[in-house]
Design a protein around this nucleic acid. Structure first.
Lengths: 182, 182, 182, 182
DNA sequence: CATGAATGAGATTTCATTCAT
DNA sequence: GATGAATGAAATCTCATTCAT
């Protein structure tokens, strides 16, 4: 009982994520995705309306979860306690995402700057920061909020080629983030 | 008196920087650069061997300065004082770069990942961090070093659409960086 | 009844052969081929991976037949009888090729020197000569073998503007070839 | 005593011959020639009017000598003796040419088909054959004449990768040529 | 549910050539 | 006797996208 139906859509998403993470969104062509999947380019268009549509779909879940977090955030007091909890939620989110997802997220600000999804994500980031700090908080405070969230992502990449284990890197990111939102 | 000899090369660099910063390296075509300059595409190829060559040339100065900093760093003791001074040097470097330069720097880790210059810059970053911390320093310490430098860049963008003045944003970045390497 | 499924691939090959024979491989552009066929350049790339791929495909059949001949040759004694039979096979091959094919073959040693297919054909020619003569046969003997095969091709071109009929030219080539391997 | 003047013109010719022989006429660009000479492309245009002009100039001497041979030929009886002497003259000509020259000659029929010099050379070849044989000579006789001259050129290339010495290859070519016009 | 065939637009790059200095 | 700077034309190739089947 329940879902059946081709899993092709999911397989496209998985492969696209792989390749976007590997070479970036711009440098990945639909031909590559199709070839790696042993289907034709036209098949991709049966499941998605455009290349952008594919990348957008990859962020669907993440954006929904961020929206939920934002909704929750609106009801919270603007305290250090709230900020710490937010950081923890965000870390869990990041931790549970497929590994390519985080790499892709890095692209958002550059190669995907002009895509709708890039704008959407940045908009949500801004909203979060606004909900965490007073609008007229000093620049330093606002910057710390942003860097806190950034640390969580960054931890996975910047220490990538050291021999530090993934879990330890993640933990370091979280620790630093908590420190920053103090 | 002084220099003569067409300044086209410099004008190409300036325009390329503008456009790369605006739309990213991948999405900027040589046609666009040429058109904005009112020259032909072939003229670009008189002055540069390839598109990559143009972007590489934009980083020439920066890379030289980073190399000088690294050289200096090798002779310093691995103290907090040294780290603070490095941060200050780096901040000055960033502050004095043309504005597009910093935006372009953001691209380096994604859209330019596969360009030689991307690799070069990341290599230097790694070297800097290695010179700042003990090889077997805890992950958190290493991460802080990286995020310190990142803060200086980030400060300019993440608070871009607030009404905080550029100078104040820069100062916030520097302050946070110093705190992190403290 | 029978085959369906666009014959575009074959039409591309035919047109390419025409034009390569007419102006040479280097001087023929994909634009010309596409225009003569009333398709777009991109259509050529749907059927072939590159310009070189097109020319290679033109030689596919010929190379296969040469390979078959070489295989047969390996089992034969190195006698005058064998040489005469080889010449006759080769003449039949040449005779049955489309006319452009022979002109294109002339190109192989010059304009296509740096193409994989040029190397392949020369390699096979060398093999044939090696199988026809003793490795330490005198230079003259080896040269005669080569010129025998060359005569068959040459006959079609060198007497082209005389009023000698094609069949007679072909016959002359064959006669001379047989004389040379005598 | 006498000539001084820059030898640049000659150096251009030598380098061009080298490169044309190496990669063929079409695939050699003026940029390559200029770079190998450490001059600019514009310098080439000071000495020659066009790329074609350069290649034409390379054949100047050869064509003059062929013309002289043709003139001499007109006064000779159409005997076997005459044919043998022609072959010997031609062999001497080929033997004394710079090595690249012979390779370039091979190009004439394909990559240079559409150049004036290609037409000129083929025209002279045809004239020679007409002067050697009766207009209504059998195809075989005419073909033998052509292949005789071809043998002299071919000898240098077709046996190139064997361990036969250059002088012996040349001798074989001459012997075969004499046999053919016998 | 997917393919085969094709396209229009555009990318990077190369070339022979020109001309003022 | 040569260079620096530039150009117009064209080349090969790639891409996202479409659509009839």
């Amino acid at each position: 009982m329940g879902e059946r139906r081709s899993d092709t859509r999911e397989r496209i998403q998985a492969t696209a994520l792989e390749l976007f993470a590997e070479h970036g969104y711009e440098k990945t062509s639909l031909r590559e995705i199709a070839e790696r999947l042993h289907v034709t380019k036209a098949a991709l268009y049966y499941h998605f309306n455009s290349k952008e549509d594919i990348v957008v779909s990859l962020f669907d879940g993440l954006i929904a979860e961020i929206d939920a977090t934002i909704a929750w955030l609106r009801d919270q007091p603007r305290t250090a306690e709230t900020r710490r909890e937010l950081v923890q939620r965000y870390a869990r989110l990041a931790h549970d995402s497929p590994p390519g997802m985080r790499r892709l997220l890095q692209d958002v600000r550059s190669s995907m700057r002009e895509l709708s999804v890039g704008e959407q994500l940045q908009e949500r980031m801004r909203t979060m920061v606004r909900l965490l700090t007073d609008r007229d908080a000093p620049a330093l405070t606002q910057l710390k909020c942003v860097m806190a969230l950034a640390s969580i992502n960054a931890a996975m990449f910047v220490l990538q080629d050291t021999d530090i284990a993934a879990e330890e890197r993640h933990a370091a990111g979280l620790t630093l983030a908590l420190e920053l939102v103090g």
